[in-house]
Design a protein around this nucleic acid. Structure first.
Length: 309
DNA sequence: ACCCAGGAGTTTG
DNA sequence: CAAACTCATGGG
Protein backbone atom coordinates (compact mmCIF):
# COMPACT_ATOMS: atom_id res chain seq x y z
CA UNK A 1 0.00 0.00 0.00
CA UNK A 2 1.30 3.46 -0.93
CA UNK A 3 0.35 6.58 0.99
CA UNK A 4 1.05 9.80 -0.90
CA UNK A 5 3.15 12.14 1.24
CA UNK A 6 4.79 15.51 0.87
CA UNK A 7 7.49 16.98 3.05
CA UNK A 8 8.10 13.82 5.06
CA UNK A 9 11.58 12.53 5.97
CA UNK A 10 11.00 9.07 7.42
CA UNK A 11 14.58 8.47 8.50
CA UNK A 12 14.95 11.86 10.17
CA UNK A 13 11.66 11.36 11.99
CA UNK A 14 12.69 7.88 13.14
CA UNK A 15 16.11 8.97 14.39
CA UNK A 16 15.12 12.28 15.96
CA UNK A 17 14.99 10.74 19.43
CA UNK A 18 11.40 11.58 20.32
CA UNK A 19 10.47 9.97 23.60
CA UNK A 20 7.25 8.32 22.50
CA UNK A 21 8.93 5.01 21.73
CA UNK A 22 12.27 3.53 20.67
CA UNK A 23 12.97 3.85 16.93
CA UNK A 24 11.59 1.05 14.83
CA UNK A 25 13.79 -1.84 13.71
CA UNK A 26 15.81 -0.73 10.71
CA UNK A 27 16.12 -3.35 7.99
CA UNK A 28 17.70 -2.52 4.65
CA UNK A 29 16.56 1.10 4.55
CA UNK A 30 13.08 0.29 5.82
CA UNK A 31 11.61 0.36 9.33
CA UNK A 32 9.63 -2.42 10.97
CA UNK A 33 7.40 -2.48 14.02
CA UNK A 34 4.53 -4.44 15.46
CA UNK A 35 1.30 -2.44 15.38
CA UNK A 36 -2.14 -3.24 16.71
CA UNK A 37 -4.65 -2.78 13.90
CA UNK A 38 -8.25 -3.12 14.98
CA UNK A 39 -7.14 -5.24 17.92
CA UNK A 40 -5.01 -7.51 15.74
CA UNK A 41 -1.20 -7.54 16.10
CA UNK A 42 0.43 -6.94 12.73
CA UNK A 43 4.10 -6.50 11.85
CA UNK A 44 4.40 -3.56 9.47
CA UNK A 45 7.25 -2.34 7.30
CA UNK A 46 7.42 1.24 6.08
CA UNK A 47 9.80 2.51 3.41
CA UNK A 48 10.29 5.93 1.95
CA UNK A 49 9.49 6.21 -1.75
CA UNK A 50 9.25 9.13 -4.13
CA UNK A 51 6.50 11.31 -2.69
CA UNK A 52 4.97 8.17 -1.19
CA UNK A 53 5.32 6.09 1.93
CA UNK A 54 5.30 2.38 1.08
CA UNK A 55 3.50 0.36 3.74
CA UNK A 56 3.70 -3.44 3.88
CA UNK A 57 1.61 -5.29 6.47
CA UNK A 58 2.79 -8.84 7.20
CA UNK A 59 -0.51 -10.25 8.35
CA UNK A 60 -4.00 -9.96 7.02
CA UNK A 61 -5.49 -6.72 8.30
CA UNK A 62 -8.00 -4.32 6.74
CA UNK A 63 -6.39 -1.50 4.74
CA UNK A 64 -8.31 1.49 5.97
CA UNK A 65 -7.50 1.24 9.70
CA UNK A 66 -3.88 0.41 8.84
CA UNK A 67 -3.62 3.51 6.70
CA UNK A 68 -5.19 5.65 9.40
CA UNK A 69 -2.78 4.28 11.99
CA UNK A 70 0.27 5.05 9.83
CA UNK A 71 -1.05 8.50 9.02
CA UNK A 72 -1.57 9.12 12.71
CA UNK A 73 1.84 7.86 13.88
CA UNK A 74 3.78 10.01 11.42
CA UNK A 75 1.31 12.90 11.57
CA UNK A 76 0.95 12.83 7.80
CA UNK A 77 -2.25 14.89 7.76
CA UNK A 78 -0.47 17.84 9.30
CA UNK A 79 -0.04 20.71 6.84
CA UNK A 80 3.63 21.19 7.46
CA UNK A 81 3.91 24.18 5.13
CA UNK A 82 1.88 26.06 7.73
CA UNK A 83 4.65 25.28 10.20
CA UNK A 84 7.35 26.48 7.80
CA UNK A 85 5.69 29.84 7.30
CA UNK A 86 4.99 30.09 11.02
CA UNK A 87 8.66 29.51 11.79
CA UNK A 88 9.64 32.16 9.27
CA UNK A 89 7.28 34.64 10.89
CA UNK A 90 8.88 33.93 14.25
CA UNK A 91 12.41 34.46 12.96
CA UNK A 92 13.25 30.77 13.20
CA UNK A 93 13.67 30.00 9.51
CA UNK A 94 17.13 28.52 10.19
CA UNK A 95 15.46 25.52 11.78
CA UNK A 96 13.67 24.63 8.55
CA UNK A 97 16.92 24.05 6.65
CA UNK A 98 18.15 21.28 8.93
CA UNK A 99 14.80 19.73 9.79
CA UNK A 100 12.75 19.82 6.59
CA UNK A 101 10.40 16.85 6.49
CA UNK A 102 10.65 16.16 10.22
CA UNK A 103 7.26 15.29 11.66
CA UNK A 104 5.97 14.17 15.02
CA UNK A 105 6.68 10.50 15.72
CA UNK A 106 3.51 9.76 17.65
CA UNK A 107 3.11 6.87 20.04
CA UNK A 108 1.61 3.70 18.60
CA UNK A 109 0.51 2.99 22.17
CA UNK A 110 -0.13 5.84 24.65
CA UNK A 111 0.70 3.67 27.65
CA UNK A 112 4.08 2.81 26.16
CA UNK A 113 4.66 6.52 25.70
CA UNK A 114 3.84 7.24 29.35
CA UNK A 115 6.22 4.59 30.68
CA UNK A 116 8.85 5.44 28.11
CA UNK A 117 8.74 9.12 29.08
CA UNK A 118 9.01 8.32 32.78
CA UNK A 119 12.02 6.13 32.04
CA UNK A 120 13.64 8.95 30.05
CA UNK A 121 13.94 11.32 33.01
CA UNK A 122 17.54 12.02 33.98
CA UNK A 123 18.63 9.15 31.77
CA UNK A 124 20.58 8.92 28.53
CA UNK A 125 18.68 8.21 25.32
CA UNK A 126 20.57 4.95 24.85
CA UNK A 127 19.64 3.75 28.30
CA UNK A 128 15.93 4.50 28.24
CA UNK A 129 15.41 3.04 24.76
CA UNK A 130 17.08 -0.15 25.92
CA UNK A 131 14.95 -0.16 29.06
CA UNK A 132 11.75 0.05 27.02
CA UNK A 133 12.96 -2.80 24.82
CA UNK A 134 13.72 -4.90 27.90
CA UNK A 135 10.26 -4.23 29.31
CA UNK A 136 8.65 -5.30 26.04
CA UNK A 137 10.77 -8.43 25.88
CA UNK A 138 9.98 -9.22 29.49
CA UNK A 139 6.24 -8.82 29.59
CA UNK A 140 4.92 -8.13 26.09
CA UNK A 141 3.47 -10.72 23.74
CA UNK A 142 6.00 -12.10 21.29
CA UNK A 143 5.13 -12.36 17.60
CA UNK A 144 7.51 -14.10 15.26
CA UNK A 145 7.85 -12.85 11.75
CA UNK A 146 10.33 -14.61 9.45
CA UNK A 147 12.51 -15.38 12.42
CA UNK A 148 12.34 -11.82 13.78
CA UNK A 149 10.88 -11.29 17.20
CA UNK A 150 8.44 -8.44 17.76
CA UNK A 151 6.85 -7.65 21.10
CA UNK A 152 3.76 -5.73 22.08
CA UNK A 153 4.06 -3.31 24.98
CA UNK A 154 2.48 -4.88 28.09
CA UNK A 155 -0.82 -3.58 29.48
CA UNK A 156 -1.01 -1.37 32.60
CA UNK A 157 -2.44 -4.30 34.57
CA UNK A 158 0.46 -6.54 33.55
CA UNK A 159 3.15 -4.02 34.47
CA UNK A 160 1.40 -3.20 37.73
CA UNK A 161 1.88 -6.81 38.76
CA UNK A 162 5.62 -6.94 38.04
CA UNK A 163 8.08 -7.10 40.92
CA UNK A 164 10.31 -4.08 41.38
CA UNK A 165 13.35 -6.19 42.01
CA UNK A 166 14.37 -9.75 42.68
CA UNK A 167 17.74 -11.01 43.85
CA UNK A 168 17.64 -13.73 41.26
CA UNK A 169 17.74 -11.37 38.27
CA UNK A 170 20.25 -8.99 39.79
CA UNK A 171 22.65 -11.90 39.83
CA UNK A 172 21.84 -13.16 36.37
CA UNK A 173 22.44 -9.73 34.90
CA UNK A 174 26.14 -10.35 35.39
CA UNK A 175 26.05 -13.27 32.98
CA UNK A 176 25.73 -13.14 29.23
CA UNK A 177 22.06 -13.25 28.42
CA UNK A 178 20.41 -14.79 25.34
CA UNK A 179 18.36 -12.52 23.06
CA UNK A 180 15.06 -13.89 24.27
CA UNK A 181 15.91 -13.78 27.96
CA UNK A 182 13.03 -12.42 30.03
CA UNK A 183 13.73 -10.57 33.24
CA UNK A 184 11.36 -11.13 36.12
CA UNK A 185 11.71 -7.68 37.70
CA UNK A 186 11.74 -4.03 36.63
CA UNK A 187 15.07 -3.02 38.15
CA UNK A 188 16.92 -5.41 35.89
CA UNK A 189 15.65 -3.47 32.88
CA UNK A 190 17.88 -0.61 33.97
CA UNK A 191 15.14 1.77 35.12
CA UNK A 192 16.86 2.25 38.48
CA UNK A 193 14.98 4.25 41.10
CA UNK A 194 12.12 4.79 38.64
CA UNK A 195 10.89 1.22 39.14
CA UNK A 196 8.34 2.15 41.85
CA UNK A 197 7.15 5.11 39.72
CA UNK A 198 6.52 2.81 36.77
CA UNK A 199 4.74 0.26 38.89
CA UNK A 200 2.47 2.73 40.68
CA UNK A 201 1.66 4.65 37.51
CA UNK A 202 0.75 1.33 35.88
CA UNK A 203 -1.51 0.50 38.78
CA UNK A 204 -3.31 3.85 38.61
CA UNK A 205 -3.79 3.49 34.85
CA UNK A 206 -5.21 0.01 35.25
CA UNK A 207 -7.46 0.67 38.23
CA UNK A 208 -8.36 4.35 38.47
CA UNK A 209 -7.67 6.36 35.35
CA UNK A 210 -8.87 5.44 31.88
CA UNK A 211 -6.26 6.44 29.31
CA UNK A 212 -8.89 6.99 26.63
CA UNK A 213 -10.39 9.76 28.76
CA UNK A 214 -7.18 11.73 28.46
CA UNK A 215 -7.63 11.86 24.69
CA UNK A 216 -10.85 13.82 25.10
CA UNK A 217 -9.47 16.33 27.59
CA UNK A 218 -7.99 19.63 26.51
CA UNK A 219 -4.30 20.32 27.02
CA UNK A 220 -4.54 21.97 30.43
CA UNK A 221 -6.89 19.43 32.00
CA UNK A 222 -4.91 16.49 30.67
CA UNK A 223 -1.70 18.05 31.97
CA UNK A 224 -3.07 18.39 35.48
CA UNK A 225 -4.18 14.77 35.49
CA UNK A 226 -0.83 13.51 34.22
CA UNK A 227 1.10 15.53 36.81
CA UNK A 228 -0.61 13.45 39.51
CA UNK A 229 1.18 10.33 38.28
CA UNK A 230 4.40 9.43 40.14
CA UNK A 231 7.46 10.04 37.99
CA UNK A 232 5.63 12.61 35.88
CA UNK A 233 6.83 16.20 36.26
CA UNK A 234 6.41 19.20 33.93
CA UNK A 235 8.81 18.02 31.22
CA UNK A 236 7.64 14.41 31.15
CA UNK A 237 4.00 15.51 31.21
CA UNK A 238 4.54 17.66 28.14
CA UNK A 239 6.32 14.83 26.34
CA UNK A 240 3.40 12.52 27.04
CA UNK A 241 0.90 15.16 25.94
CA UNK A 242 2.77 15.85 22.72
CA UNK A 243 3.86 12.37 21.63
CA UNK A 244 1.22 10.27 23.35
CA UNK A 245 -1.88 12.36 22.76
CA UNK A 246 -0.90 14.85 20.07
CA UNK A 247 -1.58 17.91 22.19
CA UNK A 248 0.54 20.17 20.02
CA UNK A 249 0.38 23.06 22.49
CA UNK A 250 2.85 21.10 24.62
CA UNK A 251 6.40 22.45 24.63
CA UNK A 252 8.59 20.06 26.64
CA UNK A 253 11.36 22.03 28.33
CA UNK A 254 14.43 19.94 29.04
CA UNK A 255 17.92 21.21 29.82
CA UNK A 256 18.77 21.47 26.13
CA UNK A 257 15.68 23.42 25.13
CA UNK A 258 16.35 25.73 28.02
CA UNK A 259 19.92 26.31 26.86
CA UNK A 260 18.74 26.82 23.29
CA UNK A 261 16.07 29.33 24.29
CA UNK A 262 18.49 31.26 26.48
CA UNK A 263 20.93 31.30 23.57
CA UNK A 264 18.18 32.61 21.28
CA UNK A 265 17.17 35.28 23.76
CA UNK A 266 20.44 36.15 25.55
CA UNK A 267 18.89 39.08 27.39
CA UNK A 268 16.22 36.98 29.08
CA UNK A 269 17.76 34.21 31.25
CA UNK A 270 14.59 32.10 31.26
CA UNK A 271 13.67 29.61 33.93
CA UNK A 272 12.02 26.39 32.74
CA UNK A 273 8.62 27.68 33.82
CA UNK A 274 9.09 31.00 32.04
CA UNK A 275 9.99 29.18 28.83
CA UNK A 276 6.80 27.16 29.01
CA UNK A 277 4.75 30.33 29.47
CA UNK A 278 6.64 32.09 26.69
CA UNK A 279 6.07 29.15 24.33
CA UNK A 280 2.37 28.96 25.11
CA UNK A 281 1.99 32.66 24.37
CA UNK A 282 4.23 32.86 21.30
CA UNK A 283 3.69 29.51 19.62
CA UNK A 284 0.22 28.33 20.67
CA UNK A 285 -0.73 25.10 18.90
CA UNK A 286 2.56 25.10 16.98
CA UNK A 287 4.58 24.87 20.21
CA UNK A 288 5.29 21.15 20.00
CA UNK A 289 6.58 21.38 16.46
CA UNK A 290 8.63 24.46 17.28
CA UNK A 291 10.31 22.54 20.09
CA UNK A 292 10.96 19.60 17.78
CA UNK A 293 12.53 21.80 15.11
CA UNK A 294 14.53 23.87 17.58
CA UNK A 295 16.06 20.80 19.17
CA UNK A 296 16.81 19.05 15.91
CA UNK A 297 18.35 22.16 14.40
CA UNK A 298 20.53 22.64 17.47
CA UNK A 299 21.67 19.04 17.22
CA UNK A 300 22.44 19.15 13.53
CA UNK A 301 24.09 22.57 13.46
CA UNK A 302 26.48 21.76 16.28
CA UNK A 303 24.87 24.31 18.58
CA UNK A 304 24.19 21.60 21.15
CA UNK A 305 27.89 20.89 21.51
CA UNK A 306 28.57 24.59 21.88
CA UNK A 307 26.00 24.90 24.65
CA UNK A 308 27.31 21.94 26.62
CA UNK A 309 28.35 23.06 30.10
C1' DA B 1 37.84 6.79 39.76
C1' DC B 2 34.80 10.36 38.42
C1' DC B 3 31.05 12.61 36.06
C1' DC B 4 26.97 13.03 33.64
C1' DA B 5 22.46 11.77 31.53
C1' DG B 6 16.69 15.40 27.05
C1' DG B 7 14.16 15.45 35.69
C1' DA B 8 11.31 14.34 39.61
C1' DG B 9 10.51 14.11 44.56
C1' DT B 10 11.59 15.76 48.93
C1' DT B 11 13.49 18.84 52.11
C1' DT B 12 15.08 23.42 53.22
C1' DG B 13 15.59 28.50 52.91
C1' DC C 1 7.62 29.82 45.66
C1' DA C 2 12.76 28.89 44.63
C1' DA C 3 16.98 26.75 45.51
C1' DA C 4 19.44 22.59 47.07
C1' DC C 5 20.04 17.70 47.61
C1' DT C 6 19.25 12.91 46.43
C1' DC C 7 17.92 9.40 43.54
C1' DA C 8 20.11 4.05 40.23
C1' DT C 9 23.03 2.97 36.82
C1' DG C 10 25.23 2.41 32.08
C1' DG C 11 28.57 4.84 29.50
C1' DG C 12 32.22 8.20 28.50
Amino acid sequence: MDIPVREFDLELTQESGQTSQPPWKRVDGAFRELLIIGGVPCPVEVRAGDEVLRVNPYSDVPRKPLKKKIEYIFDLKFEIEDLYSFLEDKGLSDTIQSSRGLRLFLAKDPFECIISSIASANCSIKRWTRAVDDIKRGWGDCHLFRGERFYTFPSPATLAGVEEESLEDLQRREDKLPDDFRFTDLRSCGVGYRAPYIRETSRILSEELDISKIHRMDYQDAREVLLELPGVGPKVADCILLYGFRKTEAFPVDVWVRRIMNHLYPDRNFSAREIAEFAAREYGEMAGYVQLYLFNHARRSGLLEKLRG
